[in-house]
Design a binder for these strands. Sequence first.
DNA 1: TATTACGTTTAGTAAATACTAAACATACTA
DNA 2: TAGTATGTTTAGTATTTACTAAACGTAATA
Lengths: 176, 176
Amino acid sequence: MNKNTEQIRKEFIEGLSHISHFWGYPKGVGAVFGVLYLAPNPLSLDEVVSQSGLTKGAVSTNVRALTRLGLVYRSSRLGDRKDYYVAETDFYKSIRAILGERQNREFDQAIRSVNLTLEKLKSAKGSMDEAERKFLVERVQALQDFFSAIDSLSRAAARLDNLGVNTIQNILKILK
Amino acid sequence: MNKNTEQIRKEFIEGLSHISHFWGYPKGVGAVFGVLYLAPNPLSLDEVVSQSGLTKGAVSTNVRALTRLGLVYRSSRLGDRKDYYVAETDFYKSIRAILGERQNREFDQAIRSVNLTLEKLKSAKGSMDEAERKFLVERVQALQDFFSAIDSLSRAAARLDNLGVNTIQNILKILK
DNA sequence: TATTACGTTTAGTAAATACTAAACATACTA
DNA sequence: TAGTATGTTTAGTATTTACTAAACGTAATA
């Protein structure tokens, strides 16, 4: 393969690793995505291994993360027991998937924790200074409201998405 | 101070630490914000130190991160050389500031790196297989377009913000 | 100018994270 | 059923990150 191509490819993959890291994902996630994104056809795990320089274990983990994020798809060929992986090229689709993913897991739990605090504060009437309690309730309530707003934003995006409307692209069109 | 209050406060702060971590910031950032957010008046650095359990150095660093994010303000009192810190309570304001912040730094650089790859590919006409080159240009271009779309989204948000329109709240109202 | 009160920076450390290498599980093939 | 090709899990390790403790800088006061 052309030397020049190799170099450019490598730099691009490094760039994606950096971006990946910036968005809070392991660098390997970016590297694996980069490899798949620049491939004209599905790659097997071992091909990703050799092109990324990571080990099988690492690629396996990173690929799993990417598929959960909707950035990579697993495909298989008849009469071939290898798995093959392809990069998603519709990023708007992916971003919505990512929003959904991030929401549903830890974020949900975090909201619940704030909610719990709020409940406790509300039921603490009498057991603590009333002025202070009121203040705390107000503050925590405000945070809770904010979180549930974010939550409903992502839900709305998912809903529109199901209706076949490309939310993000539309918003962008309006704002541009 | 009331035992019950202390406990609730502590749990709340732990919750925020968790959220902070989830969003890719140090846990200390969440803790410091929590302390300030539950305070009815500005706190000095040392007060934050004692209420968060972190050391001065850590609080100093975390507070700086928070002020850059627009989540905390530094204020000072006449005839008092301590700095005092207050939590922002308008989260919509903060989220816009955060979007701006995240954009302008590393993200910008990441975009530039992708852009650089694109330039190289475009100027490599002749020095590599033409079909492959075309394919790569197409892919990298698509990514580049996506990034610049994201970029214009955040710019648009900032612009509306300047006009006194609360973007996010409005979007939420529509989508709810 | 010496002292004190404060915030920041630095050097070292502890903890978290993502990697490698290798063992393992699974399912296809002979 | 044994052997082989594949992906996953695990144990150990290297790296990164965010912390502590202490030194440092700076500015106000005496």
